[in-house]
Write a protein that binds this DNA or RNA. Structure first.
Lengths: 206, 206
DNA sequence: GATTGGTGTAACTCATGAGTGTAATTACCG
DNA sequence: CGGTAATTACACTCATGAGTTACACCAATC
Protein backbone atom coordinates (compact mmCIF):
# COMPACT_ATOMS: atom_id res chain seq x y z
CA UNK A 1 0.00 0.00 0.00
CA UNK A 2 1.75 3.15 -1.10
CA UNK A 3 2.34 5.53 -3.86
CA UNK A 4 5.89 5.03 -5.02
CA UNK A 5 6.83 7.93 -7.24
CA UNK A 6 3.55 8.77 -8.87
CA UNK A 7 5.04 11.95 -10.19
CA UNK A 8 8.34 12.04 -12.04
CA UNK A 9 9.66 15.58 -11.46
CA UNK A 10 12.00 16.05 -14.37
CA UNK A 11 10.20 14.73 -17.43
CA UNK A 12 8.14 15.91 -20.33
CA UNK A 13 4.39 15.85 -20.07
CA UNK A 14 4.15 12.90 -22.39
CA UNK A 15 6.75 10.93 -20.48
CA UNK A 16 4.98 11.59 -17.22
CA UNK A 17 1.72 10.53 -18.72
CA UNK A 18 3.23 7.29 -19.90
CA UNK A 19 4.83 6.67 -16.53
CA UNK A 20 1.59 7.21 -14.70
CA UNK A 21 -0.30 5.00 -17.04
CA UNK A 22 2.24 2.33 -16.37
CA UNK A 23 1.82 2.83 -12.63
CA UNK A 24 -1.89 2.23 -13.03
CA UNK A 25 -1.24 -0.98 -14.91
CA UNK A 26 1.29 -2.17 -12.36
CA UNK A 27 -0.99 -1.49 -9.41
CA UNK A 28 -3.71 -3.31 -11.29
CA UNK A 29 -1.46 -6.27 -11.98
CA UNK A 30 -0.50 -6.60 -8.32
CA UNK A 31 -4.08 -6.53 -7.14
CA UNK A 32 -5.26 -8.86 -9.88
CA UNK A 33 -2.59 -11.33 -8.88
CA UNK A 34 -3.48 -11.14 -5.21
CA UNK A 35 -7.25 -11.10 -5.39
CA UNK A 36 -8.18 -11.99 -8.93
CA UNK A 37 -9.38 -9.70 -11.67
CA UNK A 38 -13.08 -9.88 -10.96
CA UNK A 39 -12.61 -9.36 -7.24
CA UNK A 40 -10.63 -6.19 -7.77
CA UNK A 41 -12.52 -2.91 -8.08
CA UNK A 42 -11.18 0.20 -9.72
CA UNK A 43 -11.72 1.89 -6.40
CA UNK A 44 -9.13 -0.42 -4.88
CA UNK A 45 -6.61 0.28 -7.60
CA UNK A 46 -7.16 3.97 -7.08
CA UNK A 47 -6.69 3.67 -3.32
CA UNK A 48 -3.46 1.76 -3.80
CA UNK A 49 -2.15 4.70 -5.81
CA UNK A 50 -3.61 7.41 -3.59
CA UNK A 51 -5.69 8.77 -6.41
CA UNK A 52 -9.38 8.70 -7.22
CA UNK A 53 -11.22 6.36 -9.48
CA UNK A 54 -12.01 9.20 -11.82
CA UNK A 55 -8.32 9.85 -12.39
CA UNK A 56 -7.76 6.29 -13.52
CA UNK A 57 -10.07 6.96 -16.42
CA UNK A 58 -7.71 9.69 -17.46
CA UNK A 59 -5.20 6.99 -18.37
CA UNK A 60 -7.28 4.03 -19.43
CA UNK A 61 -10.66 3.61 -21.04
CA UNK A 62 -11.92 0.70 -19.02
CA UNK A 63 -11.07 -1.95 -16.50
CA UNK A 64 -10.49 -4.42 -19.27
CA UNK A 65 -8.01 -1.99 -20.76
CA UNK A 66 -5.93 -2.32 -17.64
CA UNK A 67 -5.89 -6.07 -17.88
CA UNK A 68 -5.09 -5.96 -21.56
CA UNK A 69 -2.37 -3.41 -20.96
CA UNK A 70 -0.81 -5.75 -18.41
CA UNK A 71 -0.83 -8.51 -20.97
CA UNK A 72 0.79 -6.35 -23.63
CA UNK A 73 3.56 -5.19 -21.35
CA UNK A 74 4.07 -8.72 -20.12
CA UNK A 75 4.36 -10.15 -23.59
CA UNK A 76 6.77 -7.40 -24.55
CA UNK A 77 9.18 -8.53 -21.87
CA UNK A 78 8.78 -12.17 -22.78
CA UNK A 79 9.79 -11.33 -26.32
CA UNK A 80 13.42 -10.93 -25.30
CA UNK A 81 13.54 -14.44 -23.94
CA UNK A 82 11.91 -15.76 -27.07
CA UNK A 83 14.52 -14.08 -29.22
CA UNK A 84 17.40 -15.50 -27.19
CA UNK A 85 16.10 -19.03 -27.44
CA UNK A 86 15.85 -18.70 -31.19
CA UNK A 87 19.57 -18.22 -31.64
CA UNK A 88 20.37 -21.06 -34.04
CA UNK A 89 24.07 -20.99 -33.22
CA UNK A 90 23.51 -22.37 -29.72
CA UNK A 91 23.09 -26.05 -28.92
CA UNK A 92 19.49 -27.15 -28.53
CA UNK A 93 19.81 -28.00 -24.85
CA UNK A 94 21.22 -24.57 -24.18
CA UNK A 95 18.32 -22.95 -25.95
CA UNK A 96 15.80 -24.95 -23.96
CA UNK A 97 17.53 -23.95 -20.76
CA UNK A 98 17.45 -20.30 -21.83
CA UNK A 99 13.75 -20.50 -22.55
CA UNK A 100 12.96 -22.12 -19.22
CA UNK A 101 15.13 -19.71 -17.25
CA UNK A 102 13.69 -16.73 -19.06
CA UNK A 103 10.13 -17.90 -18.64
CA UNK A 104 10.74 -18.53 -14.97
CA UNK A 105 12.06 -15.01 -14.49
CA UNK A 106 9.18 -13.64 -16.49
CA UNK A 107 6.45 -15.43 -14.60
CA UNK A 108 7.95 -13.97 -11.42
CA UNK A 109 7.25 -10.41 -12.53
CA UNK A 110 3.95 -8.67 -11.86
CA UNK A 111 2.88 -8.64 -15.49
CA UNK A 112 4.10 -12.12 -16.21
CA UNK A 113 2.25 -13.49 -13.21
CA UNK A 114 -0.90 -11.75 -14.36
CA UNK A 115 -0.77 -13.52 -17.69
CA UNK A 116 -0.12 -16.84 -16.01
CA UNK A 117 -2.78 -16.48 -13.33
CA UNK A 118 -5.71 -14.49 -14.67
CA UNK A 119 -8.07 -16.52 -16.78
CA UNK A 120 -8.37 -15.01 -20.20
CA UNK A 121 -12.15 -15.32 -20.11
CA UNK A 122 -12.19 -11.81 -18.69
CA UNK A 123 -11.06 -10.31 -21.99
CA UNK A 124 -13.19 -9.61 -25.03
CA UNK A 125 -13.23 -12.29 -27.70
CA UNK A 126 -10.93 -10.58 -30.18
CA UNK A 127 -8.36 -9.58 -27.62
CA UNK A 128 -8.48 -13.06 -26.23
CA UNK A 129 -7.65 -14.66 -29.54
CA UNK A 130 -4.78 -12.24 -30.06
CA UNK A 131 -3.41 -13.17 -26.67
CA UNK A 132 -3.82 -16.83 -27.27
CA UNK A 133 -1.83 -16.54 -30.45
CA UNK A 134 1.09 -15.06 -28.56
CA UNK A 135 0.98 -17.77 -25.95
CA UNK A 136 0.76 -20.41 -28.65
CA UNK A 137 3.94 -19.00 -30.14
CA UNK A 138 5.86 -19.61 -26.96
CA UNK A 139 4.40 -23.05 -26.64
CA UNK A 140 5.33 -23.82 -30.21
CA UNK A 141 8.86 -22.62 -29.62
CA UNK A 142 9.42 -25.08 -26.79
CA UNK A 143 7.82 -27.92 -28.71
CA UNK A 144 10.03 -27.24 -31.68
CA UNK A 145 13.14 -27.23 -29.52
CA UNK A 146 12.09 -30.51 -27.95
CA UNK A 147 11.48 -32.07 -31.35
CA UNK A 148 14.86 -30.88 -32.49
CA UNK A 149 16.47 -32.34 -29.40
CA UNK A 150 14.84 -35.68 -30.02
CA UNK A 151 15.91 -35.66 -33.66
CA UNK A 152 19.55 -35.20 -32.72
CA UNK A 153 19.06 -37.63 -29.81
CA UNK A 154 20.00 -35.11 -27.18
CA UNK A 155 16.60 -35.92 -25.75
CA UNK A 156 14.82 -39.13 -25.02
CA UNK A 157 11.87 -39.78 -27.38
CA UNK A 158 8.64 -38.34 -26.03
CA UNK A 159 5.52 -36.41 -27.00
CA UNK A 160 6.71 -32.80 -27.32
CA UNK A 161 3.20 -31.53 -26.77
CA UNK A 162 2.82 -33.25 -23.44
CA UNK A 163 6.27 -32.40 -22.22
CA UNK A 164 5.77 -28.76 -23.10
CA UNK A 165 2.50 -28.86 -21.17
CA UNK A 166 4.30 -30.25 -18.14
CA UNK A 167 7.00 -27.62 -18.28
CA UNK A 168 4.70 -24.64 -18.76
CA UNK A 169 2.24 -25.97 -16.23
CA UNK A 170 4.93 -26.23 -13.62
CA UNK A 171 6.23 -22.76 -14.48
CA UNK A 172 2.83 -21.11 -14.63
CA UNK A 173 2.09 -22.46 -11.19
CA UNK A 174 5.01 -20.68 -9.59
CA UNK A 175 3.20 -17.43 -8.78
CA UNK A 176 0.48 -19.43 -7.07
CA UNK A 177 2.77 -20.66 -4.32
CA UNK A 178 5.72 -18.30 -4.43
CA UNK A 179 3.67 -15.19 -3.75
CA UNK A 180 4.47 -14.90 -0.06
CA UNK A 181 6.43 -12.79 2.44
CA UNK A 182 9.86 -14.17 1.58
CA UNK A 183 9.66 -15.98 -1.73
CA UNK A 184 12.19 -18.47 -2.99
CA UNK A 185 14.57 -16.61 -5.32
CA UNK A 186 13.40 -17.12 -8.84
CA UNK A 187 16.90 -18.17 -9.97
CA UNK A 188 16.96 -21.05 -7.50
CA UNK A 189 13.63 -22.24 -8.77
CA UNK A 190 14.80 -22.16 -12.35
CA UNK A 191 17.86 -24.28 -11.58
CA UNK A 192 15.85 -26.89 -9.68
CA UNK A 193 13.35 -27.00 -12.49
CA UNK A 194 16.03 -27.50 -15.10
CA UNK A 195 17.67 -30.21 -13.05
CA UNK A 196 14.37 -32.01 -12.66
CA UNK A 197 13.19 -31.65 -16.21
CA UNK A 198 16.51 -32.69 -17.71
CA UNK A 199 17.72 -35.40 -15.34
CA UNK A 200 14.54 -36.44 -13.54
CA UNK A 201 14.20 -37.51 -9.93
CA UNK A 202 15.83 -40.89 -10.31
CA UNK A 203 19.64 -40.89 -10.04
CA UNK A 204 21.53 -42.16 -13.06
CA UNK A 205 22.46 -45.76 -12.43
CA UNK A 206 26.21 -46.02 -12.89
CA UNK B 1 -26.35 -28.09 -22.28
CA UNK B 2 -28.89 -30.62 -21.14
CA UNK B 3 -30.64 -32.11 -18.22
CA UNK B 4 -29.31 -35.60 -17.82
CA UNK B 5 -31.64 -37.41 -15.43
CA UNK B 6 -32.67 -34.64 -13.11
CA UNK B 7 -35.30 -36.89 -11.61
CA UNK B 8 -34.45 -40.39 -10.42
CA UNK B 9 -37.71 -42.35 -10.81
CA UNK B 10 -37.25 -45.17 -8.34
CA UNK B 11 -35.77 -43.63 -5.22
CA UNK B 12 -36.77 -42.33 -1.84
CA UNK B 13 -37.48 -38.66 -1.42
CA UNK B 14 -34.23 -38.10 0.45
CA UNK B 15 -32.22 -39.98 -2.15
CA UNK B 16 -33.81 -37.91 -4.90
CA UNK B 17 -33.07 -34.74 -3.04
CA UNK B 18 -29.46 -35.75 -2.61
CA UNK B 19 -29.19 -36.69 -6.26
CA UNK B 20 -30.57 -33.36 -7.35
CA UNK B 21 -28.30 -31.47 -5.03
CA UNK B 22 -25.39 -33.29 -6.55
CA UNK B 23 -26.61 -32.45 -10.04
CA UNK B 24 -26.58 -28.79 -9.05
CA UNK B 25 -23.03 -29.06 -7.78
CA UNK B 26 -21.89 -30.88 -10.89
CA UNK B 27 -23.46 -28.37 -13.25
CA UNK B 28 -21.85 -25.64 -11.18
CA UNK B 29 -18.45 -27.31 -11.33
CA UNK B 30 -18.60 -27.63 -15.11
CA UNK B 31 -19.52 -24.02 -15.60
CA UNK B 32 -16.99 -22.78 -13.07
CA UNK B 33 -14.29 -24.70 -14.86
CA UNK B 34 -15.30 -23.34 -18.24
CA UNK B 35 -15.96 -19.71 -17.37
CA UNK B 36 -14.66 -19.16 -13.89
CA UNK B 37 -16.62 -18.89 -10.67
CA UNK B 38 -17.25 -15.16 -10.73
CA UNK B 39 -18.28 -15.17 -14.37
CA UNK B 40 -20.89 -17.84 -13.79
CA UNK B 41 -24.34 -16.75 -12.68
CA UNK B 42 -26.82 -18.93 -10.87
CA UNK B 43 -29.12 -18.27 -13.78
CA UNK B 44 -26.69 -20.06 -16.07
CA UNK B 45 -26.44 -23.05 -13.77
CA UNK B 46 -30.22 -23.20 -13.64
CA UNK B 47 -30.49 -23.02 -17.42
CA UNK B 48 -27.99 -25.83 -17.81
CA UNK B 49 -30.29 -27.99 -15.68
CA UNK B 50 -33.53 -26.77 -17.22
CA UNK B 51 -34.74 -25.37 -13.93
CA UNK B 52 -35.02 -21.87 -12.51
CA UNK B 53 -32.72 -20.02 -10.22
CA UNK B 54 -35.19 -20.17 -7.35
CA UNK B 55 -35.18 -23.96 -7.45
CA UNK B 56 -31.45 -24.02 -6.94
CA UNK B 57 -32.00 -22.39 -3.58
CA UNK B 58 -34.00 -25.43 -2.49
CA UNK B 59 -30.79 -27.42 -2.58
CA UNK B 60 -28.13 -24.94 -1.58
CA UNK B 61 -28.08 -21.83 0.57
CA UNK B 62 -25.86 -19.69 -1.58
CA UNK B 63 -23.61 -19.58 -4.57
CA UNK B 64 -20.62 -20.02 -2.34
CA UNK B 65 -22.26 -23.17 -1.00
CA UNK B 66 -22.10 -24.65 -4.46
CA UNK B 67 -18.42 -23.92 -4.77
CA UNK B 68 -17.74 -25.27 -1.32
CA UNK B 69 -19.82 -28.37 -2.03
CA UNK B 70 -17.73 -29.00 -5.13
CA UNK B 71 -14.61 -28.77 -3.04
CA UNK B 72 -15.93 -31.19 -0.43
CA UNK B 73 -16.95 -33.77 -3.00
CA UNK B 74 -13.66 -33.31 -4.78
CA UNK B 75 -11.60 -33.84 -1.68
CA UNK B 76 -13.63 -36.89 -0.77
CA UNK B 77 -12.57 -38.56 -3.98
CA UNK B 78 -8.96 -37.55 -3.54
CA UNK B 79 -8.96 -39.25 -0.14
CA UNK B 80 -8.84 -42.68 -1.74
CA UNK B 81 -5.68 -41.84 -3.61
CA UNK B 82 -4.13 -40.46 -0.46
CA UNK B 83 -4.89 -43.66 1.40
CA UNK B 84 -3.36 -45.81 -1.31
CA UNK B 85 -0.14 -43.87 -1.34
CA UNK B 86 0.17 -44.26 2.40
CA UNK B 87 0.48 -48.02 2.22
CA UNK B 88 3.80 -48.55 4.00
CA UNK B 89 4.27 -52.02 2.53
CA UNK B 90 4.85 -50.67 -0.95
CA UNK B 91 8.19 -49.35 -2.21
CA UNK B 92 8.51 -45.58 -2.11
CA UNK B 93 8.72 -45.17 -5.85
CA UNK B 94 5.56 -47.16 -6.27
CA UNK B 95 3.78 -44.94 -3.78
CA UNK B 96 4.90 -41.79 -5.54
CA UNK B 97 3.65 -43.21 -8.82
CA UNK B 98 0.32 -44.06 -7.22
CA UNK B 99 -0.03 -40.55 -5.88
CA UNK B 100 0.78 -38.94 -9.21
CA UNK B 101 -1.51 -41.26 -11.17
CA UNK B 102 -4.33 -40.77 -8.71
CA UNK B 103 -3.93 -37.01 -8.64
CA UNK B 104 -3.86 -36.93 -12.41
CA UNK B 105 -7.10 -38.90 -12.60
CA UNK B 106 -8.60 -36.70 -9.93
CA UNK B 107 -7.72 -33.40 -11.55
CA UNK B 108 -9.41 -34.68 -14.70
CA UNK B 109 -12.79 -34.92 -12.98
CA UNK B 110 -15.19 -32.00 -12.77
CA UNK B 111 -14.78 -31.50 -9.05
CA UNK B 112 -11.05 -32.07 -9.07
CA UNK B 113 -10.60 -29.55 -11.84
CA UNK B 114 -12.64 -27.03 -9.91
CA UNK B 115 -10.32 -27.27 -6.94
CA UNK B 116 -7.30 -26.97 -9.17
CA UNK B 117 -8.61 -24.05 -11.23
CA UNK B 118 -10.81 -21.84 -9.11
CA UNK B 119 -8.91 -19.43 -6.91
CA UNK B 120 -9.82 -19.96 -3.32
CA UNK B 121 -10.26 -16.22 -2.78
CA UNK B 122 -13.89 -16.73 -3.66
CA UNK B 123 -14.57 -18.64 -0.43
CA UNK B 124 -15.10 -17.19 3.02
CA UNK B 125 -12.06 -17.00 5.25
CA UNK B 126 -12.84 -19.96 7.50
CA UNK B 127 -13.78 -22.27 4.68
CA UNK B 128 -10.68 -21.19 2.84
CA UNK B 129 -8.39 -22.16 5.67
CA UNK B 130 -10.09 -25.53 5.99
CA UNK B 131 -9.54 -26.13 2.32
CA UNK B 132 -5.97 -25.04 2.44
CA UNK B 133 -5.31 -27.52 5.21
CA UNK B 134 -6.56 -30.38 3.05
CA UNK B 135 -4.41 -29.28 0.16
CA UNK B 136 -1.42 -28.93 2.43
CA UNK B 137 -1.93 -32.53 3.51
CA UNK B 138 -1.56 -33.77 -0.04
CA UNK B 139 1.44 -31.58 -0.58
CA UNK B 140 3.00 -32.86 2.62
CA UNK B 141 2.40 -36.43 1.56
CA UNK B 142 4.37 -36.02 -1.63
CA UNK B 143 7.16 -34.15 0.09
CA UNK B 144 7.45 -36.90 2.67
CA UNK B 145 7.62 -39.56 0.03
CA UNK B 146 10.31 -37.64 -1.80
CA UNK B 147 12.33 -37.22 1.39
CA UNK B 148 12.00 -40.91 2.05
CA UNK B 149 13.13 -41.69 -1.46
CA UNK B 150 16.18 -39.51 -1.06
CA UNK B 151 17.01 -41.09 2.29
CA UNK B 152 17.08 -44.55 0.79
CA UNK B 153 18.79 -43.13 -2.32
CA UNK B 154 16.06 -44.19 -4.67
CA UNK B 155 15.95 -40.52 -5.57
CA UNK B 156 18.59 -38.00 -6.43
CA UNK B 157 19.11 -35.36 -3.69
CA UNK B 158 16.89 -32.34 -4.21
CA UNK B 159 14.63 -29.87 -2.41
CA UNK B 160 11.40 -31.83 -1.80
CA UNK B 161 9.41 -28.64 -1.50
CA UNK B 162 10.42 -27.41 -4.93
CA UNK B 163 10.03 -30.75 -6.60
CA UNK B 164 6.55 -31.16 -5.12
CA UNK B 165 5.70 -27.70 -6.41
CA UNK B 166 6.83 -28.70 -9.90
CA UNK B 167 4.81 -31.88 -9.85
CA UNK B 168 1.60 -30.36 -8.54
CA UNK B 169 2.00 -27.33 -10.73
CA UNK B 170 2.26 -29.50 -13.80
CA UNK B 171 -0.71 -31.60 -12.71
CA UNK B 172 -2.90 -28.68 -11.70
CA UNK B 173 -2.36 -27.18 -15.09
CA UNK B 174 -3.83 -30.14 -16.93
CA UNK B 175 -7.45 -28.96 -16.90
CA UNK B 176 -6.33 -25.64 -18.37
CA UNK B 177 -5.22 -27.20 -21.64
CA UNK B 178 -6.93 -30.58 -21.72
CA UNK B 179 -10.44 -29.16 -21.55
CA UNK B 180 -11.27 -29.43 -25.24
CA UNK B 181 -13.40 -31.40 -27.69
CA UNK B 182 -11.28 -34.55 -27.68
CA UNK B 183 -8.96 -34.46 -24.71
CA UNK B 184 -5.85 -36.57 -24.32
CA UNK B 185 -6.78 -39.62 -22.22
CA UNK B 186 -5.87 -38.89 -18.65
CA UNK B 187 -4.00 -42.21 -18.34
CA UNK B 188 -1.66 -41.30 -21.18
CA UNK B 189 -0.88 -38.02 -19.53
CA UNK B 190 -0.08 -39.69 -16.24
CA UNK B 191 2.38 -42.07 -17.85
CA UNK B 192 4.18 -39.31 -19.72
CA UNK B 193 4.34 -37.26 -16.54
CA UNK B 194 5.79 -40.15 -14.57
CA UNK B 195 8.32 -40.86 -17.26
CA UNK B 196 9.41 -37.24 -17.33
CA UNK B 197 9.48 -36.69 -13.60
CA UNK B 198 11.37 -39.88 -12.91
CA UNK B 199 13.76 -40.13 -15.82
CA UNK B 200 13.86 -36.58 -17.15
CA UNK B 201 14.20 -35.52 -20.75
CA UNK B 202 17.81 -36.42 -21.19
CA UNK B 203 18.47 -40.05 -22.16
CA UNK B 204 20.58 -42.06 -19.73
CA UNK B 205 24.14 -42.04 -21.01
CA UNK B 206 25.20 -45.68 -21.29
C1' DG C 1 -61.54 -35.42 -3.66
C1' DA C 2 -59.63 -32.54 -0.12
C1' DT C 3 -55.16 -32.01 2.37
C1' DT C 4 -50.48 -31.43 2.75
C1' DG C 5 -45.74 -30.88 1.92
C1' DG C 6 -42.30 -30.97 -1.28
C1' DT C 7 -41.34 -28.63 -5.61
C1' DG C 8 -41.56 -25.09 -8.88
C1' DT C 9 -42.20 -20.20 -10.90
C1' DA C 10 -42.68 -15.10 -11.79
C1' DA C 11 -41.64 -10.95 -10.09
C1' DC C 12 -39.61 -8.59 -6.94
C1' DT C 13 -35.52 -6.12 -3.78
C1' DC C 14 -31.18 -4.62 -3.10
C1' DA C 15 -26.20 -4.06 -3.18
C1' DT C 16 -22.34 -3.48 -5.92
C1' DG C 17 -19.36 -1.70 -9.03
C1' DA C 18 -18.28 0.15 -13.83
C1' DG C 19 -18.33 4.11 -16.17
C1' DT C 20 -19.83 9.35 -16.91
C1' DG C 21 -20.84 14.54 -16.65
C1' DT C 22 -19.51 18.60 -14.86
C1' DA C 23 -17.52 22.16 -12.50
C1' DA C 24 -14.19 23.57 -9.52
C1' DT C 25 -9.29 23.25 -8.16
C1' DT C 26 -4.44 22.47 -8.37
C1' DA C 27 0.11 21.65 -10.51
C1' DC C 28 3.48 22.85 -13.40
C1' DC C 29 5.47 23.14 -18.33
C1' DG C 30 6.71 26.49 -21.63
C1' DC D 1 3.18 34.17 -15.11
C1' DG D 2 -0.27 32.52 -18.09
C1' DG D 3 -2.50 28.76 -19.83
C1' DT D 4 -3.20 24.16 -20.27
C1' DA D 5 -3.01 19.73 -18.49
C1' DA D 6 -3.94 17.02 -14.54
C1' DT D 7 -6.75 15.94 -10.66
C1' DT D 8 -10.53 16.03 -7.47
C1' DA D 9 -15.28 16.08 -5.55
C1' DC D 10 -19.44 14.25 -6.13
C1' DA D 11 -23.52 13.08 -7.83
C1' DC D 12 -25.15 10.60 -11.09
C1' DT D 13 -26.71 6.33 -14.54
C1' DC D 14 -27.03 1.77 -15.50
C1' DA D 15 -26.47 -3.20 -15.82
C1' DT D 16 -25.91 -7.24 -13.46
C1' DG D 17 -26.61 -10.76 -10.46
C1' DA D 18 -27.46 -12.66 -5.67
C1' DG D 19 -30.96 -13.70 -2.75
C1' DT D 20 -36.21 -13.33 -1.31
C1' DT D 21 -41.42 -12.91 -1.15
C1' DA D 22 -45.64 -14.70 -2.40
C1' DC D 23 -48.00 -17.71 -4.78
C1' DA D 24 -49.14 -21.84 -8.14
C1' DC D 25 -48.67 -26.64 -8.97
C1' DC D 26 -48.80 -31.58 -8.37
C1' DA D 27 -48.30 -36.07 -6.45
C1' DA D 28 -49.14 -39.05 -2.91
C1' DT D 29 -51.75 -39.83 1.11
C1' DC D 30 -55.99 -40.02 4.18
Amino acid sequence: MGNKSWTTPGASRDAQREGKRRAVLQAGARLFNDQGYEQTSLEEIATALNITKRTIYYYVDSKEDILFGCHLLGLEFLGETMAQSQDQSLPVMERIALLIRGYCAWVSTDFGATIAMVREQSLSADRRTALRASKAEVDFQLRSLISEGIAESSLRPCDPRLVAAVVFGALNWIPHWNRVENPVPQEDIAEQYLQLVFQGMVPAQS
